[in-house]
C-alpha cells in the first residue's frame, strides 16, 4: 500500500490532517496522564504524611518487603519501557517486524512483572503482612504502611494489566493488518505504558528501599 493511502486510512473524523490527529492523540493522553498524576499523587501524599508522622514504624515495616522481588520487577518494567519505546518508534517509522516483536516483548515483560508480583503477594500473605488481626509487626502504625503497600501495588497492577490488554489488542490488530502502523494508537499506548512504569519508579524506593541501612 502506498504511503498516502496508508495515511488516509489512519485519518479519522473530525481531524483535518494526520499530523494534527497524532498531536491530538498525544495531547489527549498527556492530559489524561496529568489526571493520573493527581490520582497517584493523592495516595502518595497520604503515604508521605504518615511516613513523616511515624518514621520508625514505617522503616521497620519497609524492611519486611522482599527487596529481591522488588528490584527484579523494577528491572523488568524498565526494560519493558525500552521495548515499548522501540515499538512506538517502529510503528511511526513503518517498520512492521520491529513493531510486532517489540510489542510482544513488552507484553511478555509486563506479564513477567505480574507473575513475580504474584509470588511476592503469596509470600507476604504467608508472612502475615496483611493488616488486621495477627499482623506480623508490633507497632500499629506499621499496618498503615502495609495498607499502602497493598493498595498502591494493587492499583499499579490494575493499570499495568490494562496496558497489557491494550498492547495485546493493538499487536493483534497490527499483525492482522486491520490497524495501520501510522495510527496514533501506538504512540498513545507508549505514553500510557511509560507512565505506569514511572509510577513504579517512585513506588520502588518508597516501599522497598526504606529502612535498609
Amino acid at each position: 500500500m502506498s504511503d498516502i493511502a496508508a495515511r488516509n486510512a489512519a485519518l479519522r473524523q473530525p481531524w483535518r490532517s494526520l499530523r494534527r490527529q497524532r498531536e491530538g492523540a498525544a495531547f489527549g493522553i498527556w492530559i489524561f496522564l496529568g489526571s493520573e498524576v493527581m490520582f497517584f499523587g493523592c495516595a502518595l501524599l497520604t503515604f508521605a504524611v504518615y511516613r513523616s508522622l511515624w518514621p520508625d514504624a514505617f522503616a521497620a515495616a519497609a524492611r519486611e518487603t522482599n527487596i529481591t522481588y522488588g528490584t527484579v520487577n523494577t528491572a523488568l518494567l524498565l526494560t519493558s519501557s525500552l521495548t515499548m519505546a522501540a515499538a512506538a518508534e517502529g510503528a511511526a517509522a513503518g517498520l512492521r517486524r520491529l513493531t510486532l516483536c517489540c510489542l510482544a516483548a513488552t507484553v511478555a515483560f509486563g506479564i513477567g512483572f505480574l507473575v513475580v508480583k504474584g509470588f511476592e503477594y503469596q509470600e507476604d500473605i504467608t508472612k502475615h503482612l496483611v493488616p488486621g488481626a495477627g499482623f506480623r509487626l508490633e507497632a500499629p502504625q506499621a499496618q498503615i504502611f502495609f495498607a499502602f503497600y497493598w493498595l498502591l501495588t494493587g492499583v499499579h497492577a490494575v493499570h499495568l494489566s490494562t496496558g497489557i490488554g491494550i498492547a495485546t489488542v493493538l499487536g493483534i490488530q497490527a499483525w492482522r493488518g486491520s490497524r495501520m502502523l501510522a495510527s496514533p494508537a501506538f504512540e498513545a499506548l507508549g505514553l500510557y505504558w511509560h507512565f505506569v512504569d514511572l509510577v513504579w519508579v517512585f513506588l520502588y524506593p518508597l516501599l522497598y528501599l526504606g529502612g535498609r541501612s
Binding site: T71, A75, L78, G90, A93
Partner: peptide
C-alpha cells in the same frame, strides 16, 4: 510520514541506537 517527529530514526538500527543508551542509564541508576 512520521507526523510530529521531525528527526525520528527511520531504521531498526537507528531506533535501537536512540533507545538502548537510555535503558543502560536506567539500569545504572537502578
Amino acid at each position: 510520514m512520521t507526523g510530529l517527529g521531525e528527526e525520528r530514526p527511520a531504521s531498526t538500527a537507528g531506533i535501537w541506537r536512540a533507545t538502548l543508551p537510555v535503558w543502560a542509564g536506567l539500569m545504572v541508576l537502578l
